[in-house]
Nucleic acid binder design. Structure first.
Length: 232
DNA sequence: GCGACAG
DNA sequence: ATCTTGTCGC
């Protein structure tokens, strides 16, 4: 476990944060195919909070993309750097996530985020932000449609429908389990939407959510408990 | 102007 | 995100 250091100049206001998004968005790379699903490594990142004690814990879990076995994992703990504001989630999560990624003993490969990438009011959600800051290919897999709209995908696993911001397809509602509500997939950085969906399906052999996020979720909660546990 | 809104 | 027990179903 490492300690999070909030970057100098981290935004303090919503206005500053939105300006950062508008500035970094130009660095997004959206014309790369991304890594092929089922090969190399895939890393899940997630964050848990104790607002009461002002503690944030992040986890990064590296899986072998073919076997989905855990290859490596790391956690980071620190203070909460930004309040939760819809559209500005990245400023709350990223410092801890970067610290956890830095603590990994091996390259992460594709990073799977719990949240959105291009499906964002300014087309720069958590997954895109993390991708630009790290240079890594990223995708976002969220549990809710946020403010976007979509028709329900067909009932079978693999069915999908466009996630729309007006006329623009910003992501896809993707059914990962028969008859279970879909997840919402969007491109983060250096990936394509169809590739992001293919990765998501490869990561969901048994549950609605990707193995990456399930592992990272469990690990960051554990790290938060440990960090806030009363001292002996 | 008011409410809704990833985690 | 987080607060929270049992319960229905494969």
């Amino acid at each position: 476990m490492t300690t999070v250091r909030i970057p100098a100049g981290w935004p303090a206001t919503e206005e500053e944060a939105r300006a950062v998004q508008d500035g970094l968005r130009a660095r997004l790379v959206l014309d790369e195919p991304g890594p092929p699903p089922g090969t190399g490594r895939v890393t899940g990142v997630d964050v848990a909070y104790d607002d009461e004690r002002d503690v944030v814990a992040a986890a990064a879990v590296v899986l072998d993309a073919a076997s989905l076995e855990v290859v490596a994992e790391a956690t980071a703990v620190g203070r909460i750097p930004f309040p939760y504001v819809p559209g500005l989630l990245a400023f709350r999560e990223i410092p801890a996530v970067l610290a956890a990624l830095d603590a990994l003993p091996c390259p992460p490969g594709l990073v799977v985020c719990d949240g959105y990438g291009l499906a964002h009011p300014r087309r720069f959600g958590l997954a895109s932000h993390l991708g630009v800051l790290t240079g890594l290919p990223t995708i976002g897999v969220a549990k809710n449609p946020f403010t976007f709209t979509c028709d329900p995908p067909g009932p079978g696993r693999g069915a999908s429908s466009p996630l729309l911001a007006g006329e623009e397809e910003v992501g896809r509602a993707l059914r990962t389990r028969d008859g279970v509500k879909p997840v919402y997939v969007s491109v983060g950085h250096r990936t394509t939407l169809s590739g992001a969906c293919a990765h998501t399906l490869a990561l969901t052999p048994a549950y609605r959510l990707p193995e990456t996020t399930r592992r990272a979720d469990a690990l960051c909660r554990r790290a938060l408990r440990t960090a806030t546990a009363p001292r002996a």
